[in-house]
Amino acid sequence: MAIQQRSFCPINLALEIFGDKWSLLIVRDLMFAGKRHYRELLQSEEGISSNILAERLGKLVEAGILTKEEDPSHKQKAIYSLTPMGVDLLPVLANIGIWGRKYLPVTKESGANAAALEKGGPALWKQMRSELRRTHSGHGA
């Protein structure tokens, strides 16, 4: 993937790939909500538009964070899966959620996942990453 970078700072390089709201929300939905199809991702609570979803999915596939394969049960559908590189974003998303729950006006319900991730800490994250690798590995991850 040709990244137009301004510097070789690892934070800059990472943000060039997944540093926008929609990319991280797509990864969140694959990771925590079990969404795997375009239509499922389109129905996200945040209301992503179809053209932005298509563009971000393409970017995430090109970057190696997701894979896209034909759905064997429906040839007009694709299954999106997290690659090991995508699964390794779990601690990033966990920490963003923990920070948001601590400092922003979330509801108890919307902050429940972040609370569980904070309580479970790195041991839970490691377990979840193993589970995600198993779940997504059957589909090109």
Rank of each mutant, 00 (worst) to 15 (best):
K21A: 15
S23V: 06
S23N: 06
L24K: 06
L25C: 06
L25S: 08
L25H: 07
I26P: 00
D29S: 11
D29Q: 04
L30I: 14
L30R: 01
L30E: 05
M31I: 02
M31G: 03
A33N: 12
H37E: 14
H37K: 11
H37I: 14
Y38Q: 13
E40C: 04
Q43W: 05
S44K: 00
E45Y: 06
G47C: 12
I48L: 14
S49K: 07
S50T: 09
N51K: 11
N51H: 13
I52N: 08
I52M: 14
L53Y: 06
L53S: 07
A54S: 14
A54V: 03
R56K: 15
L57Q: 05
L60G: 00
L60S: 03
E62Y: 03
E62I: 02
E62S: 07
I65N: 00
I65T: 03
I65D: 00
L66Y: 02
L66M: 11
K68W: 11
E69G: 11
E70V: 12
E70S: 13
D71M: 05
D71K: 02
P72T: 15
Q76K: 09
A78H: 06
I79S: 06
L82Y: 01
T83E: 04
T83S: 04
P84H: 12
P84G: 15
V87C: 09
D88S: 07
D88I: 01
D88T: 02
V92T: 12
V92N: 06
A94Q: 01
I96N: 04
